[in-house]
Design a binder for these strands. Structure first.
Lengths: 136, 136
DNA sequence: GTTATTGCAAACAATTTGCACCCAC
DNA sequence: GTGGGTGCAAATTGTTTGCAATAAC
């Protein structure tokens, strides 16, 4: 048996598998088109929604748009500067243990979690942010 | 000296201070109008943005809209069901300590953090979600 | 042939922006 | 009167929906 899922699901999952960072729906749209696997935006949103419901994708919201990544490649946690918007990924996840407990205590099947710290980076704290207001 | 900040900031901060949960911009709009302190939506968004940058408000994104609350009343963390959308607040914050370390190690001034767990609640896991697809 | 999937375009909703007005200093 | 703060309406942007065309079985 090959795949039972719709073509859109396959294309998106394969694309995200090859990714090291989370992508927005629009980025997925462009990336698929470049791969000669173009899908309509509506289809992409529908597929993302289904895959998310299915626990296969995780979502993080940044600057008004949703970023999707595979649950098998847990998105790292970030320190996000409210001023310049730059975000630094962390390497260690401090809540993996807690996640276990929660599954028990709340009888809640945890697919993934998000953890993000917001504040001001060294650069923005020091200066008035001039020299750091651009990069992502 | 009374207040140096614009009227909008005061009204919004006072409103949020009296709140036990995070509000969306639209909810703030309605609530202020009921208090005879109406502000235009644009003004509200501008004020929220400034207060956020200032580290006085924290933001959590849920179902496509931003929810704002005061940093002095830390928003609790949640277990959010991807299927029915219902979210259960947790009582304990497991990363307060980590936050301290990060401030040191990354020289990053942390204003607040968000932590959220996504998955499927008992109800939705059991049934096909019929009897639980409504409440928030 | 019937059903699920897709694309397009229109609809939506949250948020942002342009600009004129207004109020405080 | 000058400048920040505000409101309104228009514009933008991410996302969703209706529906007809298409592909899968």
């Amino acid at each position: 048996m090959k795949s039972k899922r719709p073509r859109s699901h396959d294309r998106i999952l394969r694309l995200l598998d090859a990714q090291t960072r989370a992508l927005s729906a629009q980025e997925i749209f462009v990336a698929l088109r470049e791969r000669q696997q173009a899908l309509g935006l509506a289809t992409i949103y529908r597929a993302l929604d289904a895959l998310k419901l299915d626990g296969q994708l995780q979502v993080r919201t940044q600057a008004g748009e949703s970023l999707y990544s595979r649950v098998t490649q847990p998105d790292r946690h970030h320190l996000t500067c409210l001023q310049c918007g730059r975000s630094v990924p962390l390497d260690r996840c401090p809540v993996r243990d807690l996640e276990q407990q929660l599954q028990q205590s709340h009888q809640f099947e945890v697919f993934y979690h998000t953890l993000e710290f917001f504040g001001r980076c060294k650069c923005c704290s020091a200066a008035a942010s001039q020299d750091c207001a651009e990069s992502s």
